Amino acid sequence: MKMHLLSATAGLAILAGIGGAAAQDVIIQPQQETVIREYVQKQPLASVQLPGVELNIGSTVPDTVELHRMDVPDMSYEYVVVDGRTVLVDPGTRKIVHVLR
């Protein structure tokens, strides 16, 4: 009985973790992405190389990389250009939240 209770508790904890992660997904609306693209074109940055860092949602951008603020309404993320791609980063965690295609 004790083993079943532990298994059930562990299963619920895993599901709660998955739900929490899904709730934190960042959705950039098409209109926002258009505004971001226009802003980045007007404020060009040199592209940086990040060997060993994959450009995936949740990957961490090293502290050595300078993040740049965007003057875009309702946008609290900063950005950097990596390998020619604009990457939105949460400045508090330095985690990638969106990669513009």
Rank of each mutant, 00 (worst) to 15 (best):
V26Q: 02
S59I: 10
A23W: 11
L88G: 01
D63Q: 15
A46C: 04
Y39K: 00
T64F: 10
R94H: 00
Y77F: 15
A16L: 15
G17I: 13
I14R: 11
L15F: 15
V40M: 01
G20L: 14
D63P: 06
K2G: 09
K2V: 14
P51E: 06
Y77A: 01
E78C: 04
I28Q: 05
L88R: 02
R94N: 09
P62Q: 06
P30N: 03
D74T: 10
I14H: 04
P30W: 04
E66K: 13
V35I: 14
Q32L: 07
L67T: 07
G20T: 05
Q24W: 12
V40S: 05
M1D: 08
K2I: 14
K2W: 12
G92H: 00
L88Q: 11
G52W: 11
V72F: 01
G11Y: 13
R85V: 02
P62V: 01
H4G: 13
Q49C: 14
V87N: 05
P44N: 04
R85I: 09
R94L: 10
D74V: 06
G17S: 07
R101E: 13
R37S: 12
M70D: 04
V26T: 13
R94M: 00
G52Y: 02
A22W: 13
V99A: 07
V89E: 00
D71M: 10
H98K: 01
L45V: 07
M75Y: 00
G17M: 12
G52P: 03
G20H: 09
N56K: 13
I36S: 02
E54R: 02
V53W: 06
V81T: 07
M3V: 07
S59K: 11
T60Y: 08
E33S: 03
V97E: 07
A10Q: 12
G17F: 11
L67K: 00
Q24D: 14
I18C: 14
A21R: 04
V82T: 03
I18S: 08
A10E: 05
R101A: 09
L100N: 03
L55A: 13
M75N: 14
E33D: 10
G92A: 01
Y77Q: 14
M3R: 02
M70K: 12
I96A: 00
G92I: 03
V61R: 01
G52I: 12
V61M: 06
Q49G: 07
V99S: 03
V82L: 12
Q31F: 07
A10S: 13
L45N: 11
V99D: 05
I18L: 11
G19K: 00
V82P: 03
V99H: 03
Q43D: 03
Q49A: 15
V81G: 02
P73M: 11
K42C: 02
V40E: 01
L12F: 15
R85T: 10
V97K: 01
T60G: 06
P51Q: 10
Y77K: 14
E78P: 01
S76W: 09
